[in-house]
Write a protein that binds this DNA or RNA. Structure first.
Length: 489
RNA sequence: GGGCCUCUAGCUCAAUGGUAGAGCAGUUGACUCUUAAUCAAUUGGUUCAGGGUUCGAAUCCCUGGGGGCCCA
């Protein structure tokens, strides 16, 4: 390992400490109070003259005068100022603090609490213990660390110096735990299903492929958990959910990371209308618990989860915005002709369904700022959803859209094994025609349906995107602790 | 995958084709109420990598790499 000048200086200090018989990485720490507890009970502890011991990382610059020094230390709960005097600490440790300790070192400090002349609650230190020597220097103290690349590659440093980053990940954690609680309160049971799957299914996406050596078998990292959870519904569990990582072999952008966290849940004897109610309740609860109100601010836009959500029908909205009635133009070539006639700026797609999706994505979805259920998807794009009884071209499906962002996908599940088989065959033809996101035939899943699966409503929610909304972050990588980046060199 | 922008000291940033600099941090010294401490002095560079143009390249050109923004 090659050390730069600043690292070498810190290493020299570490060696000096070792030479003086001090372990720079002792195995144990002592703490009578966290820093937040010191502040919360400051008056009481000060009046009692209590001797307290706390610990934390030296933050900001040390301010060392001839016989007096100041520094702030931080633990997860907060910051407190240390007041260090040659008189209280003794020459040896005062000089050690001055000469051999640095910003970012982690220390344990014992003493009494008092306010300084300027009124700042401080720990007047009588005894100092080094808990961990930092060999890396801090970033610039005023501008801090701003370089996005370094913030993501060295997320630990980002967390040390940026309270805003810590806040984002605390919020993300609460989003997940509140979601879990809402589901548990409704009687959903958390389950775990395979990450390594012999057949990938449940979504339209390209998989990562891996290999089991002993079985000499290719396996796929799951792109969804849908088909396994519905096997459980067929098995008789009536409410199940799973929160976990999915993997899709796709590009990285503002709203996509190759591995991401999905919540999926399935409820027997329910349909997509019941699931809409669940989604409304979930988001209303998240907003209320995280902000105290039903309204959040995302990228400058107020978003209200109080009311029931608007419903936007894909064919109706496309007709309104483009003048094309997709239910009248149900083949690819005539649809593309109509697009040219109307002079619409969308890219040509290889199938009617995808062309419809493209029209909607360009001309309707960006306008959907308030929480909206997008409904009436083409059956060709929804091989696992039940058809509308009144319109066989469309399915009982909805996507929750917030601030123009798709945050999930839900439908009345297709439980007819014969129809399901036909849908898989259709997907197989699409794959053969070059659609590398088409879904695979899963005969074991059809076998499960052949035992009978009750009418069921199902839902998938992209938890990273929900975390973006509730932490007001513009990109998914800001809500993923260690997002994917290219290797250096 | 395409277009545009960007990469200089540990960090935040300058430097119009002509001696690579500042602030902070660090180091040395002074200082017993500081908090972006102050005062004085001072160290620190493969300018992302490789090639080219030029008397001379951080700067212009080419190739490659990392990152950002927009588009697909």
């Amino acid at each position: 390992m090659e050390l730069n000048e600043l690292q070498q200086q810190r290493l020299a200090k570490l060696e000096r400490l070792r030479a003086a018989g001090i372990d720079p990485y002792p195995p144990r720490a002592e703490r009578t109070h966290t820093i937040a507890e010191l502040h919360a009970r400051f008056d009481e502890l000060t009046a009692a003259g209590a001797r307290v011991t706390t610990a934390g990382r030296i933050m900001g610059a040390r301010r060392v005068m001839g016989k007096l020094a100041f520094a702030h230390i931080a633990d997860e709960s907060g910051q407190i100022q240390l007041w260090l005097s040659r008189g209280d600490l003794g020459d040896e440790w005062f000089e050690r603090f001055r000469d051999d300790l640095d910003t970012f070192d982690i220390v344990q400090a014992s003493g009494t609490l008092r306010r300084t002349k300027t009124g700042e609650a401080s720990l007047f230190v009588e005894q100092l213990v080094l808990l961990a020597k930092a060999l890396n220097p801090p970033p610039e103290k005023y501008h801090g660390l701003t370089d996005t690349e370094v913030r993501l590659r060295e997320r630990y440093l980002d967390l040390i110096v940026n309270e805003a980053t810590r806040h984002v990940f605390r919020t993300r954690s609460r989003v997940i735990s509140i979601t879990r609680r809402v589901l548990e309160e409704r009687g959903f049971m958390e389950v775990e299903t395979p990450v390594l799957q012999p057949i990938y299914g449940g979504a339209s996406a390209r998989p990562f492929i891996t290999h089991h050596n002993q079985l000499d078998q290719d396996l796929y990292l799951r792109i969804a958990v849908e088909l396994y959870l519905k096997r459980l519904i067929a098995g008789g569990f009536e409410r199940v959910y799973e929160i976990g990582k999915n993997f899709r072999n796709e590009g990285v952008d503002r709203t996509h990371n190759p591995e991401f966290t999905m919540m999926e849940c399935y409820q027997a004897y329910a349909d997509y209308n019941d699931i809409m109610e669940l989604v409304e309740t979930l988001f209303r609860t998240l907003a209320h618990e995280l902000t105290g109100s039903t309204t959040i601010t995302f990228q400058g836009q107020a978003i209200d989860f109080g009311p029931t959500w608007a419903r936007v029908s894909i064919p109706e909205a496309i007709a309104e915005r483009t003048g094309i009635d997709i239910l009248d133009v149900t083949e690819l070539a005539p649809l593309q002709a109509a697009i040219r006639r109307e002079n619409l700026k969308v890219d040509p797609q290889p199938s009617w369904g995808k062309q419809v999706d493209e029209l909607f994505s360009v001309y309707v979805q960006p306008l959907l700022i308030q929480p909206t259920f997008v409904i009436d998807h083409p059956v060709a794009l929804s091989p696992l959803a039940k058809k509308r009884p009144d319109r066989s071209l469309l399915v009982e499906r909805f996507e929750p859209v917030i601030a123009g962002l798709e945050v999930g996908n839900a439908f009345t599940e297709l439980n007819d094994p014969l129809d399901q088989e036909q849908r898989f065959l259709e997907q197989g033809r699409a794959y053969a025609a070059g659609d590398d996101e088409a879904q695979q035939m899963d005969t074991d899943y059809i076998n499960a349906l052949m035992y009978g699966m009750p009418p069921t409503g199902g839902l998938g929610i992209g938890m990273d995107r929900v975390a973006m909304l509730f932490s007001d972050q513009p990109t998914i990588r800001e809500v993923i602790l260690f997002p994917h980046l290219r290797q250096r060199e």
